[in-house]
Design a protein around this nucleic acid. Structure first.
Lengths: 151, 151
DNA sequence: ATGAGTGCAAAGTATTTGCACGTAC
DNA sequence: GTACGTGCAAATACTTTGCACTCAT
């Protein structure tokens, strides 16, 4: 994981330069912070977590602004949009994956299915549609919650 | 389309009774209104459209409240969650379909792909996950917009 | 030096909710 | 008649923005 963090920041630096944007401490710090937070997060959660780490504080506004940049850059994805919440994840070069979301306990299960990806590309080709990204969310009941119910 | 509208309202009436909820004019009217509006809509859009039809007005609050019920009942689905907007559609017994969303012009293309649905079920089975519903959004550039760009 | 970035607080959106009144049962 | 539903306006939640100050270049 941390293997490529340095690399990611280097790439992000290039990305910013290409866009004539400044390479600021906040922007680089946020990559570290998100990476060290763990995978899935909501903005508010991140804001609170960061504000509790006294050093390297980044403000809510900057977090929102930077998350947009990081999405564009491609290391962050909005993976779940449920009710009025948005859950992001740090993807950092991982292969694309989709999510099962348990509506009972909120658990998020990641899965990769090449065949689904392939079929999507076929559909796009059929419509002359050029896909940029996609999001597949399957909402349901996870095995644990289903188990609880039976009991 | 209108063929089954009466049937839908009848079913919805049963649904409400089962939940010990009241069968009100607003609730039934909203089904008619959404059906006659056309397919995809955002709440604000619907609120405005309805308030311009002087008769059978339904308030914003009731619309929000009823949309939740209709989702639970199953005739309404949240099909696109993009930025902070939610786009709904009236599904009324149509077979499940997914969407291509053009990020340039906002066009929404529906498609049905049984194979993708099947693969999803397989994935769920693999994880002992009981799927309730899902949403697949493919964001990209539609053929028209791509055409414009080349020109 | 200077213009873009940041933090703050204020403003926007979208959605939910408390309450008084209306309506289905 | 009573409890649930409705409409209104206020509240909430999430996100964006204007502005004065700071920092990267």
């Amino acid at each position: 994981m941390s293997v490529s963090l340095r690399e990611i920041k280097k790439e992000f630096t290039r990305f910013l330069k290409r866009k004539n944007m400044k390479v600021t401490q906040s922007r680089l710090n946020l990559i570290d912070l998100i990476a060290s937070y763990g995978k899935h997060f909501e903005v508010e959660e991140l804001v609170n977590w960061i504000s509790n780490k006294t050093d390297r504080g980044v403000s809510r506004s900057t977090i929102y602004r930077t998350i947009k940049l990081l999405q564009e850059f491609g290391v962050i994805r909005e993976v779940i949009k449920q009710n009025n919440r948005t859950i992001y994840e740090f993807v950092a070069g991982k292969s694309h994956h989709d999510h099962l979301v348990c509506v009972e306990c909120g658990r998020i299960i990641e899965f990769v299915d090449e065949d689904i990806e392939k079929l999507q590309d076929e559909v796009c080709a059929q419509y002359g549609f050029y896909p940029l990204n996609h999001r597949l969310e399957i909402f349901g009941i996870c095995s644990e919650c289903a188990g609880d119910k039976v009991t």
